[in-house]
């Protein structure tokens, strides 16, 4: 059962730095874009990697958030936050000039294609978080990038204007039809899979499972990577709190979301076991 058979995050790049709040933009109900000055992380973080943020006063343990966008020139990083409990509420109410501790980059991010590829980025709700950074990196390499973004309603969609320019295509869906098409991301997915070499997905676990299964059926030649969530105590492999069920050479193995993930190949996840696992602590 050695959990060390799957590749693990590179902890040598992680730094614990004092980050200064530049501002918080409200993007929707309980949805905020937090921008921090964090020079080291702004140069180091790769798409899909995350940071552990600590606010004082605030909860004891840090909270994990995917790097949303980076500006290495200005030395800033941003996070797309959904207010859930005390930690996210305090982060959303930070005032410019206040400081938080930022530990990162942590985790394994998305793999970038080695040869020319056409990528489809699939986001559900706050799962849009890692995609501005990923799309920027893919576009800079001259890749074709398609964007499929879904949320409950129009005010909960990550704004298209916050994505980098140059997307080859973009489709928005909402559960209630208040913006774009009515339905779930999986309703729009089949028609977008044609010609795609890579599918990158982030959102609730049931959505990730559905996207993975659909892509495996309709576009088996595509590589599918998903960003998974688990409750985290540390973010760097010592608390063993973020256990997730994985598969290695077909056999089930316990993995750590913070070291082998959060981004995993769809075929590395034991989806049935994950489905039986309660989503959150509360």
């Amino acid at each position: 059962m050695s959990p060390f058979q799957l590749p693990e995050s590179d902890l040598s790049r992680a730094r614990d730095e004092a980050a200064t709040c530049i501002g918080v933009d409200e993007l929707g109900p309980n949805l905020h874009l937090l921008t921090l000055e964090a020079a080291t992380a702004s140069r180091a973080a790769l798409p899909g990697e995350f940071a552990q943020l600590q606010v004082e006063p605030g909860p004891l343990l840090r909270r994990p958030f995917s790097f949303c966008d980076l500006d290495p020139g200005r030395g800033t990083v941003s996070f797309y936050l959904r207010v859930y409990g005390e930690g996210t509420r305090r982060l959303a109410h930070l005032t410019p000039g206040s400081t938080v501790r930022l530990l990162g980059p942590l985790g394994r991010g998305f793999s970038l294609p080695e040869t020319r590829a056409s990528s489809l980025l699939v986001a559900g709700g706050v799962g849009a978080a890692p995609f501005p950074h990923l799309a920027t990196q893919l576009l800079a390499r001259g890749e074709r990038v398609h964007w499929l973004n879904g949320a409950a309603g129009s005010d909960q969609l990550f704004p298209l204007r916050r994505m980098p320019g140059g997307l080859a295509g973009s489709v928005q869906v909402t559960d209630d039809g208040s913006s774009g098409r009515r339905g779930l991301v999986t309703d729009a997915l089949p028609e977008l899979l044609g010609g795609v070499d890579r599918v990158y997905a982030c959102g609730p676990n049931p959505m990730l499972q559905a996207v993975s299964e659909m892509a495996a059926r309709l576009r088996p030649e595509a590589l599918v990577e998903v960003s998974i969530e688990a409750p985290m105590g540390c973010g760097f492999g010592t608390c063993l709190g973020c256990s997730i069920p994985l598969r290695f050479r077909g056999a089930p193995v316990p993995g750590l979301c913070c070291r082998q993930g959060p981004v995993l190949g769809a075929d590395q996840v034991d989806w049935e076991a994950l489905r039986r696992q309660p989503a959150h602590l509360e």
Partner: peptide, 27 residues
């Protein structure tokens, strides 16, 4: 012997502390 540990969730935060039931996961 190697132990896989307990099924999640394994940790929960409480005021000024945390609860854990990791279940001795070790190789």
């Amino acid at each position: 012997e190697p132990r896989p540990g307990n099924a999640p969730p394994r940790i929960a935060e409480v005021p000024a502390g945390m609860l854990n039931s990791i279940g001795l996961q070790n190789p």
